[in-house]
């Protein structure tokens, strides 16, 4: 399955972000020991990687394996949707930086430079899969909220994620009022959702 430009634009529209640019955000200075988490000794000076790199790397673990065009989707979604949401963007940036710092501390490498399997191990090692998504919680809860759930929401509220499950017009996506009447899910491109010609990734 390919993520399309339409997916990214819709994901942006769904959260009120407009004018998505391709400018990758840079991390603000992370705060070592931020929040309640105190186990990894996050190294602020080492956390200089690109926000997009970390989110795309997380998406590689969080999205299903058979997805193309991921980085473009994440770029537009992550950057675009946070432009008008300053506090959310701050939380996202800080949390991604912490995740990167944890990777450097635990595995001596930027999160994005690790294998998908190792990223998955780090996330599960932090207990993110069972953590409550809390924007003001522990680092595991914040990673669940700002990184994992942010990506899952974007993915499964667009046709590409929905189609993998069997619904071309998933909840959260403005896919019109034709699809609910159909007996079957048409091929991508045949229903106005996830047109292949818009694919750019």
């Amino acid at each position: 399955m390919k993520l399309t430009r339409r997916d990214a634009v819709v994901a942006l529209a769904a959260v009120g972000g407009v004018g998505a640019s391709s400018v990758a955000a840079r991390f603000d200075a992370p705060r070592a020991g931020d929040g309640d988490w105190d186990g990894a000794g996050a190294d602020a000076s080492a956390a200089s990687a690109d926000l997009l790199d970390v989110m795309d790397a997380a998406a590689a673990a969080v999205f299903p394996s058979d997805v193309d065009g991921r980085r473009t989707f994440v770029e537009r979604y992550v950057v675009g949707r946070t432009e008008d949401r300053a506090s959310y963007r701050e939380g996202l940036t800080e949390t991604a930086a912490e995740l990167d710092a944890i990777a450097r501390d635990w595995r001596d490498a930027a999160f994005a430079d690790l294998s998908v399997e190792t990223r998955d191990e780090i996330l599960r090692g932090l207990g993110v899969e069972t953590a409550d998504p809390e924007p003001d919680g522990t680092v595991s809860e914040r990673i669940r909220f700002y990184v994992v759930n942010d990506l899952l929401y974007a993915f499964y509220s667009t046709p590409t994620g929905g189609r993998l499950v069997g619904i071309e017009n998933p909840v959260g996506y403005p896919g019109g009022t034709e699809s609910y009447q159909r007996a079957t899910m048409p091929d991508a491109g045949a229903d106005g959702t996830g047109e292949e010609e818009e694919t750019d990734g």
């Binding site: 673990a61 899969e129 899952l152």
Partner: peptide
């Protein structure tokens, strides 16, 4: 709904 289930699930990928 898949999107609601996804953000409540205890796994990913």
């Amino acid at each position: 709904s898949p999107v609601i289930d996804a953000t409540h699930a205890e796994t990913w990928g």
